[in-house]
Nucleic acid binder design. Structure first.
Lengths: 248, 248
DNA sequence: CGACACATTGACCAGACTCAAAGCTAGTGG
DNA sequence: CCACTAGCTTTGAGTCTGGTCAATGTGTCG
């Protein structure tokens, strides 16, 4: 029988899914009765490593997770940020070997769901199969936007773009106030996500503050001028494909 | 009734799928009897644009296609290269609005497959659903590798890495000889794929030639020292997830 | 034979990196 | 409750990878 924390974990997933599509009762019940193993993680604790062959997926319940690659010389590239309701390694369902690592960015709570259970649910509910597929595609769309930023945008544009994205992501997860949210990552993390050095991230953030676009102190981001931020970043939220959410 | 060119188009898809997984007879037949509309394209002709809501997918039969984003100032970022057997916009099956464009890089032949037919096949054959899902995940894995390159690798490493990748991609599609293949893209295209300027791509390619790694003239790439190229690029083909293929 | 696109070269520039040192701040243990 | 510490942020100085601009080859196609 599902414990309180198991049920809570799965309700995070339900919330995410229902932000994207409407579920039938049977689908909702199927999700809610997935077996999960809840676990608390320390900051920086790895969840899965490059080369692993996991037999379960990781649902983020609370805190932040990141996917990242480490190069031979120790450099890190962060591939994505994940919060409550996300399943960062959903791809492992169909790609057996991990080609990057997954770790907790902050102290976090995650829930592991066995691949077998997910496959079973997907088989019984084609609508959920399509929905999970869609989640992985939304993830790819974000990757494309990051690629575009790293290839063709300036450091300033790239960071403003990332802040816009993270703010909307948190809002969609119900974790942001009006133009204000908590961002626990360090400037070094932002550097590894944007392909910059931590020193340069620091200078660019100062420039953004000097221009009155944002306030960012003690890991609290306040967006002072959303409209201007969007223009500077050339930010078009379409790529987030959060159709059922108000945006802006 | 299927014409010769329709059948040929679908056999390209079959070849790709069978390079990744083994298909049951019924699955093979289902693929082979998909309705397709074959079309010849000029070089640089767009197949789908940012903002479009397609109701069909595009299978590349011959030639090269690219997915790309255009920024406000006209800069282009190429997101991926596609050859025979690829379905570059398979994601459109579950993400209605295109957040990037798709175009022919060269003179090309493509085959359009209606979403409805694909959805029908997927519904009847869960194994094919998983396989198509997997194709989109393999695509995402390549995006991650590109992101890592653009964020953390030097121009030289990035280009060697891309050449390794393209060579193996062509080999998997049966379009490469031993350490030799045809690469129709211009240096400007390579620049837009790697986030560099065309001038710098030119200089880096010259350096690679000077180091005896490759020969590249008249759009024919000859890899003179595969082992060294792999070391320079820190290239690990794992991320291509071509499990059923020999590699190297 | 043009015309045009692509490749190559040179000169110069700038955005971002590196290295190193100095402030901060939150968490820890006494 | 305070001092200490470790990690994070900030600053400065100097460097360098890769960009820009512009001109000149080169090749291909009608």
């Amino acid at each position: 029988m599902p414990s309180a924390s198991n049920s809570h974990a799965l309700s995070m997933l339900l919330q995410k899914l229902q932000g994207i599509a409407s579920l039938a009762d049977a689908e909702r019940r199927a999700i809610q009765s997935l077996p999960v193993h809840v676990q608390a993680l320390q900051a920086d604790q790895d969840i899965g490593r490059d080369g692993d062959m996991p037999n379960q997926c990781c649902l983020v319940v609370e805190g932040w997770a990141v996917r990242y690659k480490i190069l031979g010389d120790g450099q890190r590239q962060i591939l994505s940020f994940h919060v409550s309701g996300d399943i960062p390694d959903l791809h492992s369902l169909h790609i057996p070997v991990m080609d990057h690592s997954l770790g907790a960015l902050t102290k976090a709570t995650v829930a592991f769901i066995p691949h077998d259970s997910l496959r079973d649910v997907i088989q019984r509910f084609p609508g959920l199969a399509a929905l999970f597929w869609r989640l992985t595609l939304m993830d790819a769309a974000v990757s494309h936007e990051w690629m575009t930023g790293m290839g063709r945008r300036s450091a300033y544009e790239r960071l403003t773009h990332l802040l816009c994205e993270l703010y909307l992501k948190l809002r969609a997860a119900g974790l942001a106030d009006e133009h204000r949210c908590h961002l626990p990552m360090t400037q070094g993390d932002l550097a590894d996500a944007t392909g910059l050095s931590n020193v340069h991230v620091n200078r660019v953030l100062q420039a953004m503050r000097a221009n009155g676009l944002i306030t960012l102190r003690g890991h609290t981001l306040v967006i002072e001028k959303w409209d201007e931020l969007v223009i500077v970043a050339e930010f078009n939220p379409l790529y987030l494909h959060q159709e059922r959410r108000a945006v802006g």
